[in-house]
Amino acid sequence: MLLKARTAQATTQVPPSIASTLPLINDEAIGAIMDDKTKTIILAVIERAPQWLRNDLATKDPAARARAEEALAAMLVDAIGGRQAAAD
């Protein structure tokens, strides 16, 4: 079963392995933290995440999960940083 993550532009299917690792934040809180472009970028990065990353995020092995979290964080920083560089 895939969960739906909503943005202002689209609804994206988020696999349970990824959704289970995300904190529960309501739409108002997210809106206060980031704009629609940033949310769209983050959802796109998660959507394109390779299967090994998804598997490692869902694993009980702390080292593998930490490695996956760091890889996902790097992917997000790169994607958001690219947006900010393009805006400058």
Rank of each mutant, 00 (worst) to 15 (best):
P16R: 07
T40D: 15
A87S: 13
P15D: 08
A44R: 06
K4R: 04
P16S: 12
A10K: 09
N55C: 04
M1V: 15
A87F: 08
I46H: 02
G31H: 08
L2A: 11
A71P: 00
S20L: 07
L57D: 00
D56Q: 05
I25K: 12
L72N: 02
I25S: 13
P15V: 12
A87Y: 08
Q84A: 12
A73K: 12
A5F: 10
A71T: 09
D88C: 10
L57S: 00
W52R: 10
L57Q: 00
G82E: 13
P15Q: 13
T59G: 01
A19D: 11
E47G: 10
P50V: 01
A29I: 14
P50Y: 01
G81L: 06
I33C: 11
A68K: 00
I18Q: 01
M34K: 09
A85M: 15
G81A: 04
I33L: 10
P15W: 11
V45G: 02
T38Y: 09
N26C: 08
A71L: 04
L57Y: 00
V77C: 15
M75T: 01
Q9D: 13
R65P: 00
Q9T: 14
L57K: 00
A85K: 15
A58D: 14
E70M: 05
D88Y: 03
W52V: 05
A66W: 08
L2P: 15
Q51L: 05
A68C: 00
A68D: 00
T21A: 13
R65M: 05
A63T: 06
T11Q: 05
D78K: 13
L57A: 00
L53E: 07
A44M: 07
T40W: 08
I33S: 13
P16L: 03
A63R: 11
D56T: 01
A64M: 01
A32N: 11
A58R: 02
I30H: 06
A58Q: 02
A79Y: 01
W52E: 14
T12V: 15
I25H: 02
A32T: 08
T21L: 13
R65T: 05
A58F: 04
M1E: 09
I18Y: 01
A10S: 11
M34D: 14
D88M: 14
K60Q: 12
D36V: 15
R83G: 07
T40G: 11
A66N: 10
K4N: 13
R54I: 15
A86V: 02
T21P: 00
P15L: 06
E69G: 10
K4G: 06
A66Q: 14
G81R: 10
Q84H: 10
S20V: 07
A32S: 15
A64L: 11
D61Y: 03
L22M: 09
W52K: 04
I80V: 12
R67V: 02
D61F: 03
T7P: 07
I46A: 14
T11V: 14
G81N: 14
M1L: 07
N26R: 09
L76G: 01
D88G: 11
I46R: 03
E28D: 06
P50S: 12
A64C: 05
T11K: 11
W52Q: 07
I41T: 06
A32H: 08
T40E: 11
Q13G: 13
L53T: 01
A49F: 09
K60V: 08
